[in-house]
Amino acid sequence: MDSNGFRPEHRFDVELVAVTKRYGGTVAVDGVSLRIPRATYCCLLGPSGCGKTSTLRMIAGHEVISEGDVLIHDVNVTDLPPVQRGTAMMFQSYALFPHLNCLDNVAFSLKARGVPKPERHRRARDYLARVHLQDYAERLPGQLSGGQQQRVALARALITEPRILLLDEPLSALDPFLRGQVREELKRLQRELGITFIHVTHSQDEAMALADLMVIMEAGRIRQAGPPREIFERPADAFVARFIGGHNILRDGAGTIAVRADRCRLGIPEAGPHIRGRVAAVEYQGSSVRVALAVDGGPPLSVVMPDDRFFAGPVQPGEEAALTWSTRDAHALPDPA
């Protein structure tokens, strides 16, 4: 055991055991269990109101856990305050203190621990330099751009040397261009620090790009957890397939199946499985083209194909078309109960 009582040899960085959160009569998180291996980039993904933020806040200790346990580095932290959990949280709107300059924002946790001013300022400068903001130490948060504020928030969280970094929609306030850039930085940082990041998002792209472990939640429960590739190739159910996108949910003789939109084709139905419809829209996406197909009595379908294949035999909205797929691309889904 080290001085904090945390065992150096632990199996999981974070473990949730049947964690439940109730607000009055409503259940926000319903018996969620999850094991996050060491040094994992974990993304909690789901539509709004699915319980992902409540889960994150329970791990952080900002929300009382109604039932169940949270373990960090194999130690039960369910009843510990945030500071004793070894977590640091980056808030959605960053929550930088508006009356303190960047240096004092970053140094805040050291000040709370009674570190003398020269020492805490020296260390805060180090962390500001890590996020390339050493020249902005004297600025107030209001004088920084969104991206800069995000980096100050990151430095302020990291200076606590957390075991787990919790990020609540960290990229949602940034413009799309910056988002991609910061995404890369977050991933690089996580690898360098070798700690677990838990990142809440509602963007599939973000989760796919970042996660080692992607956790898809809906209505307070985990629908599927696994590496992004596994989830994309073998969605557990129709909800997951629909939510991560890029799939057509179809029926064949045996039951419900999911087929990736980029494995479907437009063409003349031969002996193979197919479904007839009408072209509803054509979206040019640069390297690929997406054709939306309206089908009688069913949800709209789509076919994504490389641009050269599309332009070899283009179709127009309104034309009759058939969507075909190969049985080996069909992924069987459990029938909705």
């Binding site: 500071v83 203190f97 009356h99």
Partner: peptide, 29 residues
């Protein structure tokens, strides 16, 4: 007043008194 400021202070290890003195009151000043 955005309560996230107070949560951030707690997250960073401030106790109730430090949070009031260093965060809540200055922001509400």
């Amino acid at each position: 007043f955005n309560r996230a400021y107070e949560e951030a202070a707690t997250d960073l290890g401030a106790n109730a008194w430090q949070r009031l003195r260093w965060v809540t009151l200055p922001i509400l000043l």
